[in-house]
């Protein structure tokens, strides 16, 4: 009850920052033969007016953007992030992503992966800011349809 009243008093603050600051769209169905590799491109669109830290922020305290995939019939071998852009905040240079960009993941189908359709899931962890404020680190769920074929 106390929280309700506190929130009511501070209502303008309650509505800030709740929604995602980006949209994640995985590529189309990925078809891979057992034991082979394939690349997938996940599109990330940061909402206008916002930026997210790149995968390699210049300050050790900043939270990098990172795409991770859960174990499944495909194993993520490597991820390739785009080149970041530099923006100046006060006297600090930040390496950020804005707008739309792609993250390429190379997958390998396990030799014993079951043949047929499946879905692999992942998480995109990010931390977004706009010109005046930053928003708490967030995680966007990603799911990718895959088809594993026999060799």
């Amino acid at each position: 009850m106390l929280r309700f009243f506190a929130c009511a008093l501070l209502l303008p603050l309650c509505s800030l920052g709740q929604q995602n600051k980006l949209i994640v769209k995985p590529g189309q169905t990925l078809t891979v033969k057992r034991g082979e590799t394939a690349k997938e491109s996940t599109t990330v669109s940061v909402l206008p007016g916002f930026h997210v830290n790149s995968d390699k922020p210049k300050d050790e305290f900043l939270i990098p953007l990172k795409l991770t995939w859960n174990p499944g019939p495909l194993q993520a071998i490597s991820a390739r992030y785009p080149k970041s852009e530099d923006i100046k905040v006060g006297n600090q240079i930040l390496a950020v992503f804005t707008g739309s960009f792609n993250i390429e993941t190379q997958f390998k189908a396990l030799p014993q992966a079951p043949v047929g359709p499946a879905t692999i899931t992942g998480k995109l962890r990010y931390q977004a800011c706009n010109n005046e404020m930053c928003f708490r680190p967030s995680t966007a769920e990603v799911s990718l349809p895959v088809v594993v074929e026999a060799q």
């Binding site: 506190a6 929130c7 008093l9 603050l13 920052g17 708490r136």
Partner: peptide, 12 residues
């Protein structure tokens, strides 16, 4: 955070 409106945006 809840007592102070969620604090999703910083600084507050």
């Amino acid at each position: 955070a809840q007592l102070y409106g969620g604090l999703d945006a910083l600084p507050t």
